[in-house]
Amino acid sequence: MSEIVDILISASFWAAVIRIASPLILATMGELICERAGVLNLGIEGIMVIGAFTGWMAVYQGMPLWGGVAVAMGAGMLFGLLHSTLTVPFGLSQHVVGLGVTLFATASASFTYRLMLPEVTSPPKIEPFQPLDIPVLSDLPWLGEAIFQQTALTWAAFAVALVVAWTLYRTPLGLAVRAVGENPAAVEAQGLSVTGLRMGAVIVGSGLMAVGGAFLTLSAFSSFFFEMVNGRGWVCIALVVFGAWKPGKAVLGAILFAAFDALQIRLQQTELGAVLPYQLFLALPFILSILALILMSRRAEVPAALMVPYNKGER
């Protein structure tokens, strides 16, 4: 037990928690926007892969880091356009299309990677985002290391969460997006375009998912691997449910989840890790996600029109 306490009070642990939470926050915000507008986006896993790949490749080809982030976002939005075209005006099954987009995006990343780097065996590295040195704050004892030595992309993740929360709850646009996920017919009656709002939400949301993926290559690691997203997208879908479709709660969920993830990595080094197989620790995030879904299942806070396509003039 004392080992766990030691881990929990170490500054490096909390620094890791915030780092691990960042891509989850970005992608979870993306998924949350889609779902609040009434569209389940199962393309998330593949869109994160495409974001990780395109962002990294852009920087590898000589673009600045923020250029890489922009490229990733643009690529994500393109796949969002594909997803929303099929699911919104055509009203196709969001399950099938989402999985199709994930398969298509993942395959596109693998294909393009091999096409551009046919010979390499070990993935080339880029110079990733470095921790920002904030005057005074970064030098604080404990707190400085725990919180204030993160990269710009981490700060961006938290800023995005704030903007998403503010937009959803404090602007007419946010009201319209929330309404279109609850009662699209009423939105149509107001003279707003259900199709436009939903497609816009999916496209913007997919852009954020891709930036979440790009965090992995541009901030956390410095190369691209085929398996690097490794289920994080699916975890984010669970986090949206866990956060009851609310940005603030979803961020807390992501931090809680990241804390467990950071803890399991460190527990592997302890006596516990010597006794239990390491695969059990690695499975913990996925087991927790399922538990979170079960825990939150009784709450009826699902957007009423989630996964219900809207066809004008149909009653």
């Binding site: 399950h95 399922i290 879904l293």
Partner: peptide, 26 residues
């Protein structure tokens, strides 16, 4: 979980894929 609690089976079955691969590895 779907029929009793309304938990979406897409996410649970997807997550189980990852858990199962780790079990196989173990």
């Amino acid at each position: 979980l779907k029929t009793r609690l309304g938990v979406d089976e897409v996410v649970t079955t997807l997550l189980l894929n990852f858990i199962m691969l780790l079990l196989v590895s173990y």
